[in-house]
Nucleic acid binder design. Structure first.
Length: 290
DNA sequence: AGTCAAACCTGGGCGC
DNA sequence: TGCGCCCAGGTTTGAC
């Protein structure tokens, strides 16, 4: 689902296409998605797009920002005259032109461009707030340091290996739910954690504080590898993810174990197992991951 | 601090 | 064919 590589991909696109545009009008079709007053963001220019973990921030010239979380199925798609008639992936095999029944917010921009917020499951949110008050939002306030993402624009509050080692060593919890906890480490999600643990040959059920120094090092590097691969492939689009132009990524064609219950392990050929951990589907090879 | 569960949603996939 | 049920997952909240 949208994790660090996916949200970074959206951020890069929005930064390229959205910055410089003036928001002329906002049409909120599903009120639940938006909090704050849309009057505060019209007739003002987009000056920057930032990412914090899996959260996005669109900064405006008048001192306001949009804090955005796309959760599982949110899409932010920039459309101008060049790509306005293209069918966009909605979910799995469903495609539709824009706007469609899953379009909940429409930002009309100058020069005839439009930014659509679509969200099949309606879990995402857009919060209109003064830029200097973003840290008051629970999500941003409690976000832990970011797992490093190679070749990304991430600059601040990046987790070092020493930080990672300390977090893992000092945690009594099970390793997989620990990695999912955005308050401890931000940016990782279910897909890349499953694949990272597989690559590191570590059983997702292990208690964090039983990992050896060597295993922690391998895990750190494995997670870096799979996240980097995710970014290289433009994200994972098995569900609803598309980039800022509505294009799909391709990491789903390169997943190691995620979603592959019963399929042969890429290393040993024995079937991939699926269990629930922390309420989340967890895929691993019981033979390779110790 | 940890663990767990429910809630937020909808459409796909399943069993019957 | 169609109904009912479960599932997917990133937070968020609340309970123990």
């Amino acid at each position: 689902m949208p994790e660090l590589p996916e949200v970074e991909t959206i951020k890069l696109g929005l930064k390229q296409y959205l910055v410089g545009h003036v928001i002329e009008k906002v049409d909120v079709k599903l009120q639940r998605i938006v909090q704050g007053n849309t009057e505060d963001i019209i007739h003002t220019r987009v000056v920057d797009v930032r990412r914090f973990g899996k959260g996005l921030v669109i900064d405006l010239q008048n001192g306001y920002s949009l804090g955005i979380h796309i959760k599982l199925t949110g899409q932010l798609i920039y459309v101008d005259k060049k790509n306005s008639t293209k069918p966009i992936k909605v979910i799995r095999n469903t495609f539709s032109t824009l706007p469609n029944k899953w379009t909940h917010v429409i930002f009309y921009l100058d020069k005839g461009a439009v930014l659509y917020y679509n969200d099949f499951r309606q879990f995402g949110w857009i919060k209109i707030i003064k830029t200097d008050e973003l840290q008051k939002l629970v999500f941003f306030k409690e976000l832990g340091p970011e797992f490093p993402l190679k070749n990304s624009t991430q600059t601040q509050n990046v987790l070092t290996f020493d930080d990672f080692q300390n977090i893992v060593k000092n945690s009594k919890t099970v390793i997989k739910p620990l990695l999912l906890d955005q308050k401890k480490i931000s940016g990782l999600g279910n897909i890349y954690i499953n694949d990272g643990l597989f690559l590191a040959k570590i059983d997702p059920r292990r208690k964090a504080n039983t990992l050896t120094q060597e295993e922690i090092k391998t895990l750190f590097e494995s997670l870096e590898t799979v996240l980097g691969k995710g970014l290289t492939y433009g994200g994972a689009s098995e569900l609803s993810f598309v980039n800022a132009l509505g294009e799909e990524g391709h990491y789903q064609d390169h997943m190691l174990v995620y979603g592959k219950a019963g399929s042969p392990c890429p290393t040993c050929g024995k079937p991939i197992d699926k269990i629930m951990l922390g309420g989340r589907g967890t895929y691993f090879c019981p033979n390779c991951q110790k």
